[in-house]
Simulated assay, not measured.
Amino acid sequence: METGTTGGTSGPEWVGLPGGLLTLRRLLLVFWTGLFALVTALVLGLAAGPAWAALAGVWLPVLAWGWWLLGRNWLSWRYAERADDLLISRGVMWRQETVVPYGRMQLVEVASGPLERRLRLASLQLHTAAAATDAKIPGLAPAEAERLRDRLTELGEARSAGL
């Protein structure tokens, strides 16, 4: 995990995502582009002849471009815990920064699908009263996701008790 501050000493302490999420997304990219290349080669090979099957190579630049984009996207994900809220920042071209006040959180859950469990990953999902402000942090280590869940739940209960 990367940790660091941005823009001076008074800024939030940002935490990057571990590399497991990047591995998962790149594995899925290789699987799907490989499958599309195989189907393309089979269809063109059977319909137009073996020479046309070589056009399945068009998926190689798609794979390379997707590989690079996934790396850039993964680097853009980060989060920071502040005194009154949680910041989640993501995006390369269209940067999004979500601020979730602890007192507005209604539910904090940790989820992990079959592929995520295989790679020891978990996602943290934050639910608030307004559906538009729900936030998610994917690709965390399960222990970190559980730590965050417990901490955010505790802070949320403390902040909402004063309302």
Rank of each mutant, 00 (worst) to 15 (best):
75 L>R: 15
46 L>V: 07
95 R>Y: 08
30 V>G: 08
74 W>K: 04
95 R>D: 04
21 L>P: 00
94 W>G: 11
78 R>V: 00
60 L>I: 09
78 R>T: 01
43 V>G: 07
72 R>N: 11
52 W>D: 11
67 W>H: 10
76 S>R: 06
67 W>T: 03
53 A>C: 10
82 R>P: 00
34 G>W: 01
53 A>L: 11
90 R>I: 01
45 G>Q: 07
73 N>E: 14
37 A>E: 08
84 D>V: 13
23 T>R: 14
24 L>M: 15
68 W>F: 12
91 G>F: 03
26 R>E: 03
76 S>K: 06
94 W>F: 14
66 G>Y: 02
30 V>H: 08
58 V>L: 15
50 P>Q: 13
91 G>I: 01
67 W>N: 10
31 F>A: 12
53 A>E: 01
24 L>V: 07
79 Y>D: 06
36 F>P: 02
77 W>K: 01
38 L>E: 02
75 L>G: 12
76 S>P: 04
78 R>P: 06
27 L>P: 04
89 S>K: 15
83 A>Y: 07
82 R>C: 13
48 A>G: 04
54 A>E: 07
82 R>T: 09
60 L>Q: 03
43 V>Y: 10
40 T>D: 10
72 R>A: 13
52 W>C: 14
80 A>F: 07
81 E>M: 06
29 L>F: 07
44 L>G: 12
55 L>C: 13
93 M>F: 15
47 A>M: 05
44 L>H: 09
45 G>W: 04
61 P>H: 00
45 G>T: 02
38 L>T: 07
39 V>C: 12
61 P>N: 02
51 A>W: 15
80 A>G: 05
61 P>L: 05
78 R>G: 09
56 A>H: 02
85 D>Q: 09
60 L>F: 08
40 T>L: 11
21 L>Y: 11
88 I>E: 09
69 L>C: 11
40 T>N: 06
34 G>T: 00
53 A>W: 01
82 R>H: 05
53 A>Q: 03
26 R>H: 03
23 T>F: 12
51 A>V: 15
42 L>K: 06
69 L>E: 14
88 I>Q: 05
74 W>G: 07
90 R>G: 08
89 S>M: 13
89 S>Y: 08
56 A>L: 04
84 D>A: 15
59 W>V: 01
51 A>Y: 15
62 V>P: 09
62 V>Y: 09
85 D>G: 05
75 L>V: 04
25 R>N: 11
80 A>H: 07
82 R>I: 02
56 A>Y: 03
42 L>W: 09
44 L>S: 13
70 L>P: 07
22 L>K: 06
54 A>R: 05
85 D>F: 07
90 R>Q: 14
71 G>I: 00
65 W>T: 05
71 G>T: 00
76 S>Q: 02
28 L>G: 14
95 R>G: 13
73 N>R: 12
52 W>E: 12
49 G>D: 13
61 P>S: 03
82 R>K: 11
89 S>P: 02
33 T>Q: 08
25 R>V: 00
33 T>Y: 12
73 N>T: 10
61 P>I: 00
30 V>K: 04
50 P>L: 15
41 A>S: 11
52 W>S: 15
49 G>Q: 10
60 L>S: 03
49 G>S: 10
38 L>Q: 02
44 L>C: 09
67 W>D: 08
21 L>Q: 08
